Simulated scan of single mutants.
Amino acid sequence: MTMHFSVLASGSTGNAFFVETEDQSFLVDAGLSGKALEGLFSDIGRDMSKLSGILVTHEHSDHIKGLGVIARKHKLPIYANAKTWNAMERNIGQIPIEQKFHFEMEQIKTFGSLDIESFGVSHDAAEPMFYSFHHEGKKVVLITDTGYVSDRVKGIISNAEAYIFESNHDVSMLRMGRYPWNIKRRILSDVGHVSNEDAALAMSEVAGDRTKRIYLAHLSLDNNMKDLARMSVEQTLKTQGIIVGEQFSIYDTDPKKATELVSV
């Protein structure tokens, strides 16, 4: 009785996450082309047509690019809150009414052996929310696209076995980079994205004795690098008295390559 997951793709160019139990399987976000998503499913040895459904976090294109195409092709249910539905419908094409479902913020929905809990984040979208997955006493948390992690969210996501956690940018790279100032200001704001250091500080508060894996996710292609993110997170955690490798391990994600399908 285990829960498996894979970060299929993560980054500013496209995001998708897969989670399954013995009787349920869900895709969270479909921010790549239908063809690319089919390839990623093949890479982890899974069949997209057998999904129980697709969960949507918010309407930005790097999270919904392939949503309409694959939902129609495989006749998959889509779950999103009302404001996200309103914001994304014009971008995903016509979805049959029998495939449209509401999953509101701060809800827990039960699908067979899997309980899925939604929670709001601080991001410049209509009503962005992410998910915590519960199965047989185990918990996996997906949290990216947030300008900061509130105390309320920290309480919801604390002491999970695994986290897929945003580590979007290095502040110095962002400040010195080519983005116009209004974009930099948006990313650095409370409705933008968390930096490597801020991510690590939040991790230090939510990681518990059950925590074994933390995946660094949604890295900016322009303002971060895998090695830099990992080093910054490890150094910041060390200042909080946490030595990576003793309590938990840190893993990379990639915008085009799925992580290994692992169990918790």
Rank of each mutant, 00 (worst) to 15 (best):
V28A: 09
G39W: 01
S150K: 00
G93D: 06
D227E: 15
I143C: 07
I187E: 09
S52C: 09
D198K: 11
N223C: 13
F101W: 06
K257I: 13
M176N: 12
S167P: 05
E59Q: 15
T239F: 04
M129N: 03
K154H: 01
V153A: 08
F103A: 03
I70V: 15
A80W: 03
Y131Q: 02
M88T: 05
A162F: 04
G147T: 04
W181K: 10
F248I: 10
L142T: 02
T144N: 12
V19L: 10
I164A: 11
H134V: 01
F26K: 06
I157T: 00
L237G: 11
L76H: 01
T57Y: 08
F103T: 04
K154G: 01
Y148W: 02
T146G: 04
A258Q: 14
L40F: 01
R90S: 12
S172I: 14
T57P: 04
E127T: 08
G120V: 15
M225A: 15
E117L: 10
I78L: 07
L27V: 08
G137Y: 04
A30Y: 13
A217W: 06
D151R: 06
R186E: 11
V69T: 15
M48H: 03
A202R: 01
A126M: 11
A217T: 10
F41K: 05
A160T: 03
H123T: 11
A207R: 00
S6R: 07
D254G: 00
R210N: 07
L32Q: 10
V171Q: 14
A162S: 13
H63M: 05
N159Q: 00
S220W: 12
L32M: 11
A9E: 11
T253K: 08
H218G: 09
H135L: 02
G53E: 10
F18S: 08
T239D: 10
L40P: 02
D145M: 02
S118R: 11
Y179L: 15
L51Q: 04
K35R: 10
I183W: 09
L221P: 11
I116E: 09
V191T: 14
I70M: 12
L228C: 12
G93I: 10
T253Y: 12
W85T: 06
V7P: 09
A162Y: 06
A229I: 11
Y131F: 14
V171E: 15
T57E: 04
F133L: 04
G45P: 06
A87E: 09
E38Q: 12
K226R: 13
E197K: 15
I156N: 02
D190N: 09
I108R: 07
E166N: 14
Y148D: 11
K50E: 07
N223P: 03
